[in-house]
């Protein structure tokens, strides 16, 4: 059962965008997320750290053609938290439409 629940960690604009990028896929490269958000490496790392501390996102690193690549993915807890947050946003919109 999906309980609507506002999540202040996810709701911050950049973190909401990170979760939105990750939710429909398995994982995404750090650089792709950075470019789409239009932020620097350090800004993205800061937000990723906050999501990691909450247990919502994890990183994995792999070497491809001699270069280190970093991938981010949503954990199960992250997906659930995001779904609940979206449900709460939809509830707020529906209530205002009544």
């Amino acid at each position: 059962m999906n309980i609507a629940q506002f999540d202040s960690i996810i709701h911050a604009p950049n973190r909401l965008q990170i979760c939105s990028l990750l939710v429909p896929i398995e994982d995404a490269e750090f650089k792709l997320i950075r470019d789409q958000l239009g932020v620097s490496d350090s800004v993205l790392s800061k937000h990723v750290k906050q999501l990691e501390d909450a247990g919502y996102v994890k990183q994995r690193k792999e070497k491809v053609n001699g270069r280190q690549r970093t991938w981010l993915y949503l954990t199960e807890a992250g997906r659930i938290a995001f779904e609940r947050h979206v449900a709460e946003l939809m509830r707020i919109v529906q209530v205002s439409n009544l």
Binding site: L16, Q36, M90, I92, V93, V95, S96
Partner: peptide, 22 residues
């Protein structure tokens, strides 16, 4: 923890946009 409906709508639009990009 409290946001207005305008902000909620804007957040939902942002979510859709980024999901589609992915």
């Amino acid at each position: 923890t409290k946001i207005n409906s305008k902000e909620a709508k804007s957040a939902i639009e942002s979510i859709k946009k980024f999901e589609n990009y992915s």
